[in-house]
Design a protein around this nucleic acid. Structure first.
Lengths: 332, 332
DNA sequence: TTGTAAGCGTTATCAT
DNA sequence: ATGATAACGCTTACAA
């Protein structure tokens, strides 16, 4: 900046005034022009670190996710990064796969970030201490302590139930992730409630919890299929589980959707890769991330955080080929 | 730090000496203990921004990827983030999906990052100017101008060819991404060379380029299938293409592997989700990311960058169910 | 061994 | 409208 000042024949603070884009900076047009020219000639790049030191904030947000190979979180990250970048915020990415979240948070704090977006599960099993002094936005989990962005998870469950009921199914199964996250609980609740509203029962052997992975879904589906009275349709609370379940069916020779209807929830790209394409309830993951970032960005752009939590983002049924009418003759 | 100093009854620079972990800092054991205690009591968190200002480097690396929903890059990011985090480096994530790379790079420069990891394609179609002054590590692309980490792409192509040849196929097809990246070219070259070595021809209508997406693969496969003499086995240079191709086969009723053998390259998780599981050549994406990060981290931990580029990371054939012996009777 | 002082590149508060 | 000058929180000679 000093170099620019010299070239422009003015003082360094004046250069700052011009370049920082401070709106209440009253600088003579001539001076401004000279400064701008000099800066361009010298290829001046402002030092954001110095800026951050003065402002005591880094114009950056942290993003803590459990694992990037989970396409849902990849989408969340993508959405958040887009909004943040457009607002001039850097995104510090932290994957809590082999490094404890608390350590990530210490690093973020030390770097003077303006806020953290994190997944609900990570936050849940965290020493509350570890979050002190941070502005947190939770993904898909309401909390009285922090802000959050959510999808309409209960509706997702209801949509799934209604879709299967509409197809004539009455013998239903459910596979959910064995994870204490609000959105998962609500997907389950919505599903169960909608069945109850229709006077369709869901016996407990047909309601299973599994590790939220392909393998988990595969195992749970095998268990369902060996039941004395297997369901004719199964709703999996995440696509990953459903994909695993689908695989189990392929392996065991259960034809989808002829013998069994199967659907998932999340709307990840993979559901369009398998055959048959998986019916699912799409959750706008990218939007969730974008909205979370917006919350933080706005908060530090002066705009106050909205008092009431935003309305949950709508979910959408994607009826595809993995669900169909109930089989006329029950499978042997 | 001043508070800590006061509580410990010493001066602020002494506190710095103790806390910065500077090895050549000779501080009395008693003093050190008092400082450490005081810091703990006050819950002191060092300000990395101030540190970065003094050092003129942020102890952070930039990571520029084309799109996170490409599982290959999700893995690269994951690997890089792990290594960086363990070395105390922050990772600034940039997705070049809706924001020009050059803008991302400006931001990274302004933040005094120590280096950038970027994908080959992004770097290729970039004004060379935009990279000036940055330490760059390219993913899966050798370059005389920058460091790079690479997989053994030519071997990947050879492995694919040999696998299909071993199964008895002589009528082969190839689908590659229409992208000028070194690793893709090498996969193709390795494949073609291995065929030539075996005196098996690859006519040009059977060699196709497509958009590197599901749709691209689907389209290219349709084209191959409508050939007067369709191949009995197809190698796709990326899994995404292969997955698209697989879908085309499903849609058109071509049974895999009975009527056609199909394989991909990359080794992404999705290949295990489809039925049949896709034969592929696994490229260690996570390792590529990790190694790229290690390069940068080491460079700034004092260790000089290795003179000769590291040996390419080995690729591995994963023979699964999408490839099989050549059909006894050619399909009609 | 420890404290004093200078400086990293900005922004912000003043006089002028 | 502009230019000194003092932070911001830390590291690093150098002096004591």
């Amino acid at each position: 900046m000093l170099d620019v000042a010299r070239l422009a024949g003015t003082s360094q603070p004046t250069v700052s005034l011009v370049l920082s884009g401070n709106p209440r900076a009253r600088v003579a047009a001539r001076t401004r022009a000279r400064v701008l020219l000099a800066a361009a000639q010298l290829g001046y790049v402002p030092n954001e670190v110095a800026r951050a030191l003065v402002h005591r904030r880094a114009t950056a947000i942290g993003l803590v996710v459990p694992a990037l190979d989970n396409p849902f979180f990849a989408d969340v990250v993508s959405g958040a990064q887009r909004v943040a970048a457009q607002a001039g915020f850097a995104v510090l990415l932290c994957e809590a796969r082999e490094i404890p979240i608390s350590r990530h948070l210490d690093v973020l704090r030390a770097r003077q970030i303006d806020g953290v977006i994190m997944d609900a599960v990570g936050a849940a099993l965290l020493d509350p201490e570890a979050l002190s002094g941070l502005t947190v936005v939770l993904i898909d989990e309401p909390s009285d302590r922090w802000q959050g962005v959510a999808s309409d998870a209960e509706r997702a469950g209801r949509l799934a139930a209604r879709h299967l009921l509409d197809l004539g199914h009455r013998e239903l199964g459910f596979i959910g992730p064995a994870i204490p996250a609000h959105s998962f609980r609500m997907r389950e609740r919505g599903f169960v409630q909608a069945l109850r509203d229709a006077n369709v029962g869901l016996t407990s052997p047909r309601l299973r919890r599994a590790e939220p992975s392909l393998q988990g879904g595969e195992g749970a589906m095998r268990a369902l299929l060996t039941l004395a009275a297997p369901p004719t349709a199964v709703f999996c609370a995440t696509d990953l589980l459903a994909l695993g379940a689908l695989k189990a069916c392929h392996v065991l020779g259960v034809r989808i959707p002829h013998e069994l209807s199967l659907m998932g929830c999340d709307g990840i790209e993979m559901t369009r890769v398998v055959t048959p394409e998986l019916t699912t309830v799409a959750v706008p993951a990218r939007e969730l991330g974008a909205r979370a970032a917006r919350l933080l960005v706005n908060a530090f752009a002066g705009k106050a955080a909205p008092e009431k939590p935003g309305r949950p983002l709508p979910v959408r049924l994607l009826a595809r080929r993995s669900t169909g009418p109930v089989p006329a003759v029950p499978s042997p």
